Amino acid sequence: MIRTITTLLLFQTIGEGIAFALSLPVPGPVIGMVLLFIYLVVAKGAVDKLAPVSLELLKHLSLLFIPAGVGIMVHAQRVAAEWLPIALALVASTVVSIAVTAAVVRALQK
């Protein structure tokens, strides 16, 4: 378990370091996830080692939304002042996500 969590945090840290060092507009955890994906594709046995603990972490994923909810409550005035751009971004990203998911499912069914 410690090894899996260390591996996940290592890739996140590497992603953060790359994003900071290169001043990239992409968040570090996203870069870390891409690097982790590449690692899982290249290292054949890595999936079997990371899967059990990763699945246990996913069972408790809802706990990770607590800080986001607190952040929204702390910045409630700003959210209220900028509700229209936030709502438009949420609707647009939802539509794009549904469209991309439909396209991927359709492509995989062929």
Rank of each mutant, 00 (worst) to 15 (best):
G15C: 00
A102I: 05
L90Y: 09
L64S: 01
I38H: 00
E82A: 14
E82Q: 06
K110F: 11
S93K: 03
I18T: 07
V74E: 00
G69C: 08
M73S: 10
G69M: 08
K44L: 12
E56Q: 14
A107N: 07
T13Y: 08
G17R: 06
M1Q: 03
Q109P: 00
A51Y: 03
P52G: 04
V41D: 03
V70P: 00
A76W: 14
V96E: 04
I18M: 00
E82C: 05
G28F: 14
V30G: 13
F11I: 01
E56T: 11
A87G: 08
L36F: 09
E82H: 08
L10C: 06
P27T: 03
T13V: 14
R78Q: 15
L58D: 06
I38T: 08
T101R: 15
F37A: 12
K44M: 02
V47E: 15
Q12L: 13
Q12K: 05
A107I: 01
S62Q: 13
L64M: 12
L10M: 12
L108E: 10
F65A: 02
G45P: 02
L63W: 13
A76H: 01
L57V: 02
V74F: 11
L88V: 12
V42Q: 05
E16T: 08
L10V: 15
V53A: 07
A89L: 15
I72T: 04
T13Q: 06
T6Y: 05
G71P: 06
D48A: 11
F11G: 03
S93A: 13
A43Q: 10
T4Y: 08
Y39L: 02
E82I: 00
A80Q: 09
L35T: 01
A43S: 05
H60A: 12
K110Q: 09
R78I: 10
V104W: 13
K44F: 14
W83V: 10
K49R: 13
L8Y: 03
A21L: 13
H60C: 00
L63E: 05
R3V: 11
A103P: 07
P27G: 11
L10T: 15
T6S: 12
S97G: 02
G45D: 10
S93H: 09
V70T: 06
L50N: 02
V104H: 08
L61H: 09
I2D: 07
A102K: 07
V104I: 15
K44P: 00
F65Q: 01
I98W: 03
S54G: 12
I66V: 12
P85R: 01
G45L: 09
G69R: 05
V79I: 14
V30N: 07
V34S: 03
L22Y: 11
Q109W: 04
M73F: 01
A46C: 10
V105P: 04
S93Q: 06
A89F: 10
G17M: 10
A107H: 14
L90S: 07
A87N: 00
L24M: 14
S93V: 03
A102S: 11
L36T: 07
R106V: 01
G28Q: 14
A81M: 02
V105T: 14
A92F: 11
L8V: 13
I18F: 00
V34Y: 03
A46R: 12
A92N: 11
P52H: 05
D48T: 08
V53L: 01
T94M: 15
E56D: 09
P25F: 07
F11K: 01
L90P: 00
S54N: 10
S23H: 15
K44E: 10
T101Y: 15
V34L: 15
